[in-house]
């Protein structure tokens, strides 16, 4: 294996092992799992949408919310722990470039986010499948059209969520690389997530013909082009 790849994969491996042991990860995983499970109980609030869609939307919403918090805090924490504990000093004195170190950190964090997303997606799949079976029986009794549940569709959504959280983790890591404190990184990272979520507003404003000042247009351009937008699910 290429030496650079080997070093990067070892940094990723140790980062993954460190992150997966964190209580914060376990706490958010359990919290999100409770939210996914509770989505069935809250299906009466479906606001006219189909029941299965509401359950899926609710669960994916929770997955993104808690996943974003996890990506934000965990990425910053894993990075600054290396600096504050001075393990980075030991590692960077080896033939390891800063790029390899950051890439390894990202891949390790992203792998943990993958465990988070796919564990919840599996749980969600079990819930959706069992509820679908109940609805199929109910539809046969009442003569309605039976609902359909697509495993591949759920898997696609889970992959997109994972990519989305990967973008969040990458943004936070980029901020970490230039920031001096954990708190600053978390605040700027959170602002970047919010800005990314609201990016469509900047895009619309930029595309509309207006007599806005050059400064305003420049800010809109930066908001719509530079700040990464996590892919929508």
């Amino acid at each position: 294996m290429n030496a650079r790849l080997t070093r990067t994969s070892w940094i990723a491996r140790i980062t993954f092992l460190e992150a997966i042991r964190q209580r914060f990860f376990a706490f958010l995983l359990v919290l999100s799992a409770v939210m996914v499970v509770s989505s069935v109980s809250l299906r009466f609030m479906d606001f006219g949408h189909s029941e299965l869609k509401f359950v899926a939307d609710f669960a994916f919403g929770g997955m993104f919310l808690f996943g974003s918090v996890l990506a934000l805090v965990m990425t910053a924490q894993l990075f600054f722990a290396e600096i504050e504990n001075r393990t980075a000093l030991t590692l960077l004195a080896k033939p390891l470039s800063r790029t390899e170190f950051l890439l390894g950190k990202f891949l390790g964090t992203w792998a943990v986010l993958g465990v988070f997303v796919f564990s919840l997606a599996f749980l969600q799949g079990v819930i959706l499948w069992s509820r679908t079976q109940e609805l199929i029986v109910l539809a046969a009794e009442t003569g309605r059209v039976a609902p359909d549940f697509s495993v591949s569709g759920l898997a696609s959504f889970a992959v997109l969520q994972w990519l989305r959280l990967g973008v969040v983790a990458a943004m936070v890591l980029m901020v970490s690389a230039v920031a001096r404190t954990f708190l600053f990184t978390v605040i700027v990272g959170a602002m970047a997530i919010v800005a990314g979520q609201l990016q469509w507003l900047a895009q619309e404003a930029l595309l509309k013909p207006s007599d806005a000042s050059v400064v305003t247009k420049s800010l809109l351009w930066i908001s719509s082009r530079v700040i990464p937008q996590p892919p929508a699910v």
Partner: peptide
């Protein structure tokens, strides 16, 4: 760096 080994002061490891 490949030819150098380093033990930092008060080392901390995982």
């Amino acid at each position: 760096r490949q030819r150098t080994g380093f033990l930092p002061e008060a080392p901390y490891f995982h």
